[in-house]
Nucleic acid binder design. Sequence first.
RNA 1: GGGGACGUAGCUCAAUUGGUUAGAGUACCGGCCUGUCACGCCGGGGGUUGCGGGUUCAAGUCCCGUCGUCCUCGCCA
Length: 611
Amino acid sequence: MKNWRRTRTCGELNSESIGESVVLNGWVHARRDHGGIYFVDLRDRYGITQLVLGGNISEAVKLSAEDVIAVRGKVVARDESNVNKQRPTGWIEIDVEELEILSKSLTPPFEVSGGDEPAVETRLRYRYIDLRRESMQKNILHRAKFISAMRRAFDDEGFCDIETPILTKATPEGARDYLVPSRVHPGSFYALPQSPQIFKQILQVSGFDRYYQVARCFRDEDLRADRQPDFTQLDMEMSFVEEEDIYGVWERILVRTFRDAMGLELSAPFQRMRYDEAMERFGSDKPDLRFDLELKDVADWARKSDFGVFRGALDSGGRVMGLCLPGGAKLSRKEITALEVVVKEYGAKGLAWWKASADGGAGPLARFCAGNLAGDLMALVGAAEGDLCLFVADRQDTVRRSLGELRRHLAAAPHAGVARREGWAFLWVTHFPMFERDEEAERWVSLHHPFTAPENWEFWKEGDGDLSCIASRAYDLVANGWELGSGSIRIHRADVQAKVFEVLGIEADEAQEKFGFLLEALSFGAPPHGGFALGLDRVTALTAGLDNIRDIIAFPKTTSAMDLMCVAPSPVPLGQLEEVHIRPAGRALVRAFETTAPEPSTEASSGSSRV
RNA sequence: GGGGACGUAGCUCAAUUGGUUAGAGUACCGGCCUGUCACGCCGGGGGUUGCGGGUUCAAGUCCCGUCGUCCUCGCCA
C-alpha cells in the first residue's frame, strides 16, 4: 500500500520549492489533453497547481472534472514562455510520477470553474458543489475569519462565552416561534429561541457581568434578502453599564475586528443620532449616511402657497416634506413618474415635483411658485437652479417613510447621479420609542422588546393615554443603511418590569406564567445591565460586498424556508407524530398519510423522486 | 396572505405577429493533437419547453389553474 497522504497543498508551492518531491491531493479543476502530454489543474482550498502528466501515466485519460486524486511528483520550474502570471503557483508545475484516483465524480450539475453562475435553485440543491466555487469559498472563509477575529476581541475584553438552550420556552411577544413538541409531556411544546435574551439577562443576575455567545436564533416569519429563519448573532450582555459603555466596547471590538479580519481602519467613536432625528432628516431608522439628500420640512412654504393638496395635509395634522436631487432637472417626465411609483409603494398618494428656478421653475408645482415663492421654496429645500425637488404631503409616518425610501432609491439609481462617499458609515441610532400602537389589536406593543428600560419612566407612570412619545433606552447599530444589530439597557427591577407588562396588556398571571422566572430572578438582586446583538450574517455579507445574506451562509433556505439540499421540512410518518402526541388535520393529515402509506411496487424509482 | 419577475438541453441563454424538424455556447461522449492554462481541430448524443387544463387548423409563444425560484408589501419583540 502506497501512502497517498498529501505533503503539501495546492496553493503553497512556488519557485522556492523547485526540486522538491511532493504528494498532492485535490480535485481535478480542469484538464487539457494534448495527446501524449496531459495537463491537470489540481484544486484544493488553498489554490490551484498545474500537474503535467506524460505518456507514462496511463490513468491520465480516465480523469474527469471533480475527480479526487493524489499525485506523487517533483516540483519543476516552468520555461519563461510557459509561466502563468495569473496564479501564484504559475511559475512551477508538478512533473507527475504516479497518480491515484481516490474518488471518481459524476458529471457535475454545473461547472465549478468559470462558467456562468447557475440559478439559485440549482446552487442550493447542490450546495456542496456550489460551495466549491471560488466566490463561495471566499465568502465562507471571510465569515470564518471575521467571526474568529470578533471572538478574540471579546475574549480579550474579558467576556465569558456561555451557551444557552436551543430547546426553550415559547414567548407570547414578538416573532412567531418555531415549536418543538414534547414526547414526555403530552400537549406541551418547547420553542426555539428567537434570541437568548432572557437567558443572558439571567446570567447578569448570576454575576457573569460580561457574557457573549455566537448564538443561533430562530424566527418563523417570512424571508427577505437579509432575513433567514435561522440566523446567527454575536450576542452580548454586560452589568453595571449605561449606553456609552456598550457603545464603547462595540466600537473597540469592531475596530479590532475590521483591522484583524480585513486590514481596514474604522474611525471611532461612531456617530450617534436619536431616532427622531434619523426619521426627520432621513425618513429611516437605518439611514445610509454615505450620501446627503436630506428630507426638508416645507410646511412654512405650503402655508403661504395656494396648493390645496399641501394645505389639506397640514390642516389634517399631517406634514409636507421634500428632498432635493442636485442636477435632477435633467430627468425626463417618464423618469420622474417612475419615482412616483416608489413613494406610492409606501403609502404616499402622490409625488409633487418641481424643477427649481428662481423664475418659477417647471413641473406641477411651478404655478404655485409665483414671485418670491420660488425663491422661498429653493431656500427651504436647499435647492439651486437645475435641481429637482420632490415632495410628499400626508400623515407624518407616510411622508417620512416614503421619502426615506425615495432617498435610498435615488442613491442607488445610476441616472440620478447622487454623490456617494466611500467607506463605512457607522452610527448608533438611539432613543427608540418605547411603545408602538398595534391598531389592529388595539393595544400598545414593545418596539424593541418588553425588557427594555424606559428613558423617561416618571412621565407616563401617572396614567395611560398616548404612550408613543416615551423613549426607550434601546439602540441600533447601522452601517451603510443596513441595520446590523440592536440592543438596550434593560429593566433590572421586578416592579418596573411588572409595570411594563401591565402597559403591554400582559395580565399579571400571564406574565407570571410566561416570564415569572425572569421576574423572580430580577427580585433576587439584579445588577443594572444592558447588551447588544450583532447580526453576523448581515455584517459578514455587507463586508463581503454581498447584497443577500444567503451567500455568506453555508446552507441557507429559500424564500419559502425550504432547504433544497436536504428537502426540509418534510413529512414524517404518523407513528412519529403520535409519539409526540400530534394529530395532523386537513392538508397536513393527507400529507401524513401519503408519507406513512407503504409505497406501491414502484419503490425502486421513488428513491430519486422529490416531494 | 397580497404584488411583481422568472421557469426552454446537465448549465447559461435564444427562438420575429401563434406557423418548417425548438437553436447557440458550454458541459458530456468518441477521435486527433507533446506546452496548454477559457487549449485547439473533427464528429456525436442529449428536449414531457415546470406540471395540468383550455382556445386554435396550428401553442415554447395566448388564456385559466397549479408548483417552484427570486424580489417585495404585510410580517419580522
